[in-house]
Structures are given as structure tokens and as C-alpha cells.
Amino acid sequence: MTPPPRRPRRPLPFWRRLSATGWLLLSLVIGLGGGLYYAWVVDPVVFTDASPARFSDRYREEYIILVSQSYAVNQNWPLAEQRLAALEDPNIAETVNNLLETAVRQQRPAPLLEQLAIVARQLGAQGQAIALFAPTLPATTVQPTPTPAIVTTPTNTPPPAATATNTAVPTLTPTATTPATATPQPNYRLTEQTRLCGDDEAISRIEVVVLDAFLNDSPGIEVEVTWQNGRDRFFTGFKPENGRGYADFEMSPDVSYTVRLPDGSPEVSGLRIDECANGLSGGWRLTFQNLREGSPTPPEEDE
């Protein structure tokens, strides 16, 4: 009699194979996962006493803009610095400069660009946008507008005694001046003044380029050139092949010219045909930028 065939032994289910320690570890892992899920997803830590350092990108930008506007109002730089420090940004100057450049690309209002540029410059940042919207032009570049309103009163210096030599020339002594009046802010600023030198040709012209606040060419802007006993006025945009904000003027030798924009700009004087390094005559190129928002209305056609 043969023994019945042995039936294969069924494996034990896993829970019967787990030791007590195994169950402990398994439940520990499950509990840990549940705890983390609850703490991170269901009921995460809610911060209510945040600082500006925790702001999202949108609010960081908004905060920087607000600080720059506040600084424009109260001119309190230590306070502005303190506020910016709350962002805990080690590269705050670069951040403000980047925000300025983004704002320039987005064609945000000119006053806002100017306020941001001033703060960026105060922080020590450097860049093209800062140079354009918060320039520190050298004082010698721009000639101040003459103020002929100064009243001078000639006072005769009494002649010296008989022994004196014949130097009794009346001298003019300015004794009274008009009270200082607020100088109106110009609508344009001179952003560039460079010599024009050709490689193989003489140049005797003044080129004027007028840009709006967003550095786009501004057509139809009046330019005035004056010289001794002479004056000429013309408009940008009549040579579109050179740009819609372009205009030029031919100079005569040995004459000094002064250029300004009647809409309100610094006067640039002392412009004359000068010799370049290569021995040829050279001219000048002036670039003006509108400081105000938008472009001025072009003059009428029949003007």
C-alpha cells in the first residue's frame, strides 16, 4: 500500500510570517507616513507673523516698488534701506536693478522707472537702465541756462588822490541780484554728447537724436540752434532713413553754436567744427531723452 501523495504545503500568509518586531516596524512606518501627511498637507504650519523676506516674487516686486515710491516722497534713505533689508536679500542691489530693467521692458510709467533707478543707484548698482533714468551727468557737460535778469548797479569808484596814476576807470560792481526763483524742471535731459569723426570724410554737422522716456525715437520734436546773430529751428523725423527721432544741422567754420529743445532741455553750447584725431573736421552728436511720461504732441503740419 502506497502512502497517499503528499500535498504541497501552502505558504503561510505574510501576516503569519511577520514577527512581533516586524509588525512594530511596519506600523511605525505607516504611522510616520500618516503623521507626515497630516503635518505637511492636512494641517501644515501656518505662519502668521511673516516678514517681507517670505513674500512671493510678486509681492517682493510690489514691496520694492512701494519702498522706492516712499523714498521719493520722504527722501528718508535710512528708512528705505531698513525696509529693503527686511527682504533679507544679499543681492538686493542686483534685484532692484533687475526689477528696473524688467519695468523698462514692460514700458512702465517713467516716474516709476526713475524712482526704481534712484534706489538702485543708491544701493550701488550699475547698469544701462540706471544710467538712463538716474544719471549723474558731469556738471561740465551741460551749460546752465543764462539768467540775464541779474541787475547790476554801476558805482563809480572815487578817483584817487592826485598822486594816483590814471587808473580811475569806473568799475561795475554787482550789488543787487534778483531773488532766486525755482528753475522749472526740464522736460528733456542730455544723455549723450559725442564727437562725430569720419574715417575718410570731413563732417561739419550737428546730429540731434530725441528719444522718449522709453528710449523710442521721438519724431516732430522742435530743435533750436542759435549762434551769434543767427537762429534756426527744425524738427526731428524729416530724415526717417536715419531714425524718426533724428535731425541735423550744418555748421559753418569758426562759428560757435548752441543747441536746445524749446520744449525744455539743457542748452548745449560751444559746439563748433573741430579737428578730429585724423586731421579731418568733425561735428557733434547730441542725444536727448524725454523725462516725462509719453511723448509730447508733435507740432502741426502747417507750422
Binding site: A20, W23, L24, L25, L26, S27, L28, V29, I30, G31, L32, G33, G34, G35, L36, Y37, Y38, A39, W40, P44, V45
Partner: peptide, 18 residues
């Protein structure tokens, strides 16, 4: 053992998460 493991794990998870 199961309850002990769950309790320990949940406590550890909450401590880490919070």
C-alpha cells in the same frame, strides 16, 4: 505592537512635519 508602532510613527511624523 501594532498600536505602539502606529503611535510612535505618527508622533515621529508630526514632530518632523511640524
Amino acid at each position: 505592537f501594532i498600536l505602539l508602532g502606529l503611535a510612535l510613527g505618527a508622533g515621529l511624523g508630526l514632530a518632523v512635519g511640524w
